[in-house]
């Protein structure tokens, strides 16, 4: 286990982490502002991935395909908000959970009808296939590096919009005082649709970036969604900063666990036992981490709510 190898896996962890962050930011915004529990957030991730793959195949251009995928996720998100979710804001969490569960079933099956159940794999254009030299001497894929850069840029932009702009102020005020914002003459319905679409676009962005790294298939959204829940529980709900820290922690812990837990265990217990226990423990690691955080701080590390 060399330093170079560990560093590379660390980067992979950050890469996974920023994708979790894009998902968590949208989910936490939608919950913080509209008080809506949206299980179908993972479906928007999946929709973004599929639309980008289809658009890339159609236009023959990766960047154009990505842009169309992003726009598509935004549009689908806004349509879903208007058609199905708008009536649910005043309902309790139970109704929201069930209705968005119905949405998941619908989207997973719709995607299977259009593109089939088999996983799709996409190839990257030549300019993204290369590697960069790391200072450790090993090489790192350009594309994964790009994902990290895009994710961090979005994080900075998001922080700026939410804390420094008029729109961000409206968004934060909408969270705490609906009638006040409405009295200012802001169309709150439209604001909500836009915010939801924005969250959908973030999920779509994560999905379309995931396409070339992971398999694009029905149900891909829920695998990541549940990990995003772990991020939000650890980071504290309603907090962009908490989402970023939680996402990086979960991304790194999960990636390093999968890479190194088995060899590490092997040096402590017998190799065959490590062979069996390693993967099991690695797949449970982030959930155990969540349990520990909950035991110490039930409201998460950065909750915007008081104790």
């Amino acid at each position: 286990m060399t330093f170079g190898l560990v560093f590379e896996q660390l980067l992979n962890g950050v890469q996974f982490g920023v994708m979790l962050f894009l998902m968590a930011a949208g989910l936490t915004l939608v919950f913080g502002i509209m008080n809506l529990v949206n299980l179908a957030h993972g479906s928007l991730y999946m929709v973004g991935a599929y639309l980008a793959v289809a658009a890339t195949a159609w236009t023959g251009n990766f960047a154009l395909g990505a842009a169309l995928g992003l726009a598509g996720a935004l549009l689908v998100g806004m349509v879903v908000e208007v058609v199905a979710l708008r009536t649910l804001y005043e309902r309790d969490h139970l109704d929201q959970v069930l209705a968005t569960f119905g949405l998941i079933l619908f989207f997973n099956e719709l995607v299977a009808i259009v593109w089939g159940r088999a996983a799709l794999y996409t190839s990257l254009p030549a300019w993204l296939q290369g590697h960069v030299e790391l200072f450790t001497g090993s090489r790192y894929p350009v594309y994964r590096g790009l994902v990290i850069v895009v994710g961090l840029l979005v994080a900075v932009a998001l922080w700026y919009v939410v804390t420094r702009t008029r729109i961000g102020m409206l968004v934060r005020a909408g969270a705490s005082n609906r009638t006040m914002v409405a009295a200012l003459g802001v169309n709150i319905r439209l604001l909500y649709t836009v915010v939801f679409g924005f969250g959908a676009a973030l999920a779509g962005l994560a999905g379309l970036m995931a396409g070339p790294i992971y398999a694009v298939q029905p149900g891909m959204g829920e695998l990541i969604l549940i990990q995003v829940f772990v991020v939000i529980v650890i980071g504290g709900i309603g907090s962009i900063r908490g989402a970023l820290v939680g996402a990086l922690v979960v991304g790194i812990v999960d990636t390093l666990g999968r890479a190194f837990l088995k060899p590490l265990l092997g040096s402590v217990i017998s190799p065959p036992a490590a062979e069996a226990a390693g993967p099991a423990l690695a797949s449970m690691l982030i959930y155990l981490l969540m349990a520990v955080v909950l035991a110490v701080r039930p409201e998460g590390l950065f909750s915007s709510r008081g104790s």
Binding site: H93, V230, V233, P279, A280, S283, M284, L294, E299
Partner: peptide, 23 residues
């Protein structure tokens, strides 16, 4: 915990057991 936390946590722990079963 309560509310949405409770929903997410119970879902996450069950997913953990699911992965345990898979492994």
């Amino acid at each position: 915990t309560s509310g949405i936390y409770f929903i997410m946590i119970t879902l996450a722990f069950t997913q953990m057991l699911y992965f345990l079963g898979v492994s």
